[in-house]
Design a protein around this nucleic acid. Structure first.
Lengths: 354, 354
DNA sequence: TAATTTGGTGCAATCGATTACAAAAAGTTA
DNA sequence: TAACTTTTTGTAATCGATTGCACCAAATTA
């Protein structure tokens, strides 16, 4: 009726002259309630436009039915796709997803953790920021006894589950592919080696060279960040010298894009003179004039599995206090024009081509 | 101490042999509490690692300090940027942002609204889905007396504030620009005219033609959705006939991208033979081999202003029950190669060029 | 010294829903 | 019909923090 007043079970109980306890039980389909009463309550609830106050429930039960996700940026396809996967799995279970961005800043990350814990979320999913070195703020989640799941970028904390992809394998696949296309001077744009994911990609790169008996040339390994400009600068630097590379494996799609733009300016033919492959399979790679090869991280799957791990964890909680599950997904090589010298590759390789 | 037990103000009060009321007041810096007691409480709270239970607070105060945002997809630069803006403004005020995706489905939208209302969010920001026609589920928000702010895609509901851009003007600017580049057969890819934003862009297009005395040619107006394929198909259709256009204004960047790809296949020179401009200024437009002109919707600003409108609204609530504010932002024309016949335009037009 | 002000705390109700336990109502059996 | 089950419903405590009101003690004033 009145706009301001929210309808509670007490309003229903008063109207029907029964106790609030009965109303509560009727609404929850408690079998101890007679069919007659239940129907009456249900009908009245509908009439009064009753809505359960989840806060009261949460306070009583200690469960908020919401989980927090902390990512560097939501504005990156990889992360928003992971969130998509998490949401897809958790919404049917009645969870709300609270999303926070760290903007790659450990301080924001810590603040968000505090806020989420105060909100009493039932679990936290996170991909750590690049500037996160020590983990005291993360361990607060565990002290608070809140389930924590890392995805993609993790820290090694005992008892914490994680879902990642096999970055080593991704790095290996990318490099191997370039070698198979005839390259033997493969450059590598590696990201911040503080982050495990970039270290692993880098190691995969090295191992591929080793397996194919290609000597490692330190001049061809460039430390870049994930920005377009960084890729362009790296190319400028490499082409200023002699002994230029004949292929580039970039740990970032954005840096790879910058590289391609710069190579075009220098009139270098791609993929004939230089093959290029990135990492992440951001949507733009597909839409480019010269579509770019990349490594797909199956982010939606990653989110879905992270959510499943979470659900398992809270269900087993009473039995095993520190379940720990480390899921490693397989990356997928996506070959497009930027690295593909063959006219047509369809059906010739066990990978997706587009 | 024990991992499971959360510390409450009662634990503090017991330890210090004072009442919980005093503890609460001390923690909230109530001036009625003596300095000595306050310090003691603060110190003890720290020692015991006390964390306020926001649920209890929320239940008591009726405020959850969280708001909900419903967008079609978070995985679209425009929307994630708006969310960014909202978050930027609201985080300092202690709000959590709960994000939901409708996936352009009115049913999901309704479910999310119900969930958010049950969660007792302090406000809801939304951009309606394409399939939302009737608004009963949206009006439930108002019945619940929860502040609602539309952004970008709105419905006309009395008393609801909105932040949008001037799509008419955007459509006009885009079209005028093409005309000024010499075009007089401008094609228009218009989106779903059920949505106000596409209608407005379309009307802006028509008005520009009128102002420049260019007759309207219905054959050049194509209904497309926002997908790449749709743009490609539209071009295929147009080029199959005679009387081809000499410019294209697409209400979607994605359709414009498809158009450019198709035009290249047909060996049509851009921008010499056909100028192309999109709408939204998605990041990829800038990174294309042939960077694409577009209309920027200043999404971060949109989010920031939406948040400000919300804050104003809840502060004025006691005074005016139905404030209604309709903010319309100005779009920005971004000229890039795809529509720019002049070698260099820098400084010659009052618009941003890149 | 008595009366009054001021400062600091405590008591108890409140927010809305759940649930163990008690109690009443209805149904069964002898 | 008395005694006993079985159903169904009610009472009251609980989750944790806040806050109006009452109260006591110390300080001030007359």
């Amino acid at each position: 009726m009145a706009k301001n007043e929210k309808v509670t079970i007490y309003d229903i109980s008063k109207k029907l002259n029964i106790s609030a306890a009965t109303v509560s039980r009727a609404l929850n389909n408690n079998p101890k309630i007679s069919e007659k009463t239940r129907e009456l309550v249900m009908k009245t609830a509908q009439e009064l436009n009753y809505k359960q106050n989840r806060l009261a429930l949460a306070l009583k039960s200690g469960k908020t039915n919401s989980i927090g996700v902390i990512v560097p940026y939501i504005n990156r396809n990889f992360f928003s796709a992971v969130i998509d996967g998490i949401e897809k799995q958790l919404t049917p279970h009645g969870y709300n997803v609270i999303i926070c961005q760290s903007h790659e800043d450990a301080i924001n990350e810590a603040n968000h953790i505090t806020a989420l814990l105060n909100t009493q979320v039932d679990g936290i999913f996170m991909s750590v920021s690049k500037t996160t070195h020590d983990t005291v703020h993360i361990e607060k989640i565990l002290e608070n006894n809140t389930p924590l799941i890392f995805f993609d970028r993790k820290k090694d904390i005992p008892g914490v589950s994680s879902v990642t992809i096999d970055d080593f394998r991704g790095g290996y696949m990318a490099t191997e592919h370039l070698i198979q296309q005839g390259a033997n001077r493969v450059a590598h744009f590696c990201g911040d080696l503080n982050l495990e994911i970039y270290r692993n990609r880098h190691n995969g790169f090295l191992k591929a060279l080793e397996d194919y008996n290609i000597p490692i040339n330190k001049n061809l390994i460039i430390h870049t960040n994930s920005r377009i400009e960084a890729g362009a600068e790296a190319v400028a630097k490499l082409w200023a010298k002699k002994n230029r590379p004949d292929a580039i494996f970039s740990s970032s799609d954005y840096a790879a894009l910058g590289a391609i733009q710069e190579l075009r300016k220098l009139n270098v033919k791609i993929p004939e003179e230089v093959g290029v492959i990135g990492f992440s399979n951001e949507p733009f790679t597909k839409y480019m004039e010269l579509p770019m090869s990349s490594i797909d991280q199956t982010p939606v799957t990653m989110g879905e599995i992270a959510a499943q791990v979470f659900l398992e964890q809270i269900n087993n909680k009473q039995h095993v206090l520190s379940v720990e599950k480390r899921v490693v997904l397989a990356p997928e090589l996506v070959i497009r024009k930027s690295s593909n010298k063959a006219k047509s590759l369809k059906g010739t390789l066990p990978v997706s081509t587009e």
